[in-house]
């Protein structure tokens, strides 16, 4: 009898083990492989001064690594226009994206917007500016006809889509015919310097870069006139893949939203040149999507 119970006990132990192996262990293995990654690979879009930019983000990455217990690695994602492609090829987990690429990534890659920074001036958004030299005599859209324009990059809201949408709203549907020439500078700062130096009559760039340069150089305020401004949108947003573990996502969000409340976090924020992070939502990008739609119609009309 006791031998029966002994063998039954052994059988039950084996059965429980088998059941554990069959139903519990594999999912547990899947969770650890797919949802608790060894590292988070985060992309950043290149700015005008890429060396300063890498320094600013490096301290943030170190802080997040310490707080999350997951190594946060950074990678530069080539130029603006290739961000969506590069996101896939680099197998990124997330990225700090400018407003237009964030809008496209949310739509095409199903990324989820997490947080965006509030800059040192207290601004949590940026807007597009269209500007000219004050001594150019250009005061409105009619004065712009026949002149030269510098844009930033085809994949920027402030530096291309906004001016395109603005021109279309004001009756300019053929850029090749209405303007003398146009070119892309590659950075917001270069677009501003291009107009200041006279390489272009009209420029488009984002307000945060414009205002920062103007703070350090009084001639910018004295010599440039802002003709038009776009709606305000988040400047840079951290977006994550939707497959990232929800606990990790929540923890990452919490760390970023709370970091201005700790001395260590404040120091990192200072290096990152931000006051704090605030929560982002997909609704933040609706205005950009509308502008992109208007701009796409303009692109369709003038074929550029």
């Amino acid at each position: 009898m006791s031998r029966f119970w002994e063998s039954a006990h052994t059988f039950l132990k084996g059965l429980v083990f088998c059941l554990f192996v069959c139903f519990v262990w594999p999912p547990a293995l899947t969770v650890s492989a797919g949802e608790l990654p060894q590292q988070l690979l985060i992309g950043i879009e290149p700015e005008h001064n890429i060396f300063d930019q890498v320094e600013r983000y490096r301290s943030l990455a170190r802080y997040l690594t310490d707080q999350l217990g997951v190594e946060v690695k950074l990678t530069i994602m080539s130029r603006y226009g290739e961000v969506i492609k590069r996101f896939k090829t680099l197998k990124l987990d997330g990225a700090f994206l400018t407003s237009y690429t964030a809008t496209m990534a949310i739509k095409e890659l199903m990324l989820e917007p997490l947080v965006h920074p509030v800059n040192l001036s207290g601004e949590m958004t940026s807007q597009g500016y269209i500007f000219v030299r004050k001594d150019s005599g250009i005061g409105d859209i009619d004065g712009m006809r026949g002149k030269s324009i510098v844009f930033v990059d085809p994949a920027t809201m402030e530096g291309y889509l906004f001016p395109l949408a603005y021109f279309r709203q004001h009756g300019i549907t053929d850029m090749n015919r209405e303007f003398n020439r146009f070119y892309f500078s590659g950075s917001h700062a270069s677009a501003i310097f291009g107009v200041l130096d006279g390489r272009a009559d009209i420029g488009a760039a984002k307000s945060t870069v414009f205002n920062k340069l103007a703070d350090g150089d009084s001639s910018i305020q004295q010599e440039l006139r802002i003709i038009a401004q776009s709606p305000k949108v988040p400047e840079i947003t951290l977006c994550l893949r939707s497959e990232i573990d929800s606990d990790l996502r929540a923890k990452l969000t919490a760390v970023l939203l709370q970091m201005d409340k700790t001395p260590q976090g404040q120091k990192v924020l200072e290096q990152f040149q931000a006051l704090r992070f605030v929560k982002s939502t997909t609704a933040d990008f609706e205005k950009v999507a509308e502008m992109a739609q208007e701009a796409r119609a303009a692109i369709g009309e003038h074929g550029k």
């Binding site: 030299r133 200041l196 006279g198 001639s219 010599e223």
Partner: peptide, 10 residues
């Protein structure tokens, strides 16, 4: 012609 002098200082 006109050259923006401020750019030279900048």
């Amino acid at each position: 012609f006109k050259v923006p002098m401020s750019s030279i200082i900048r």
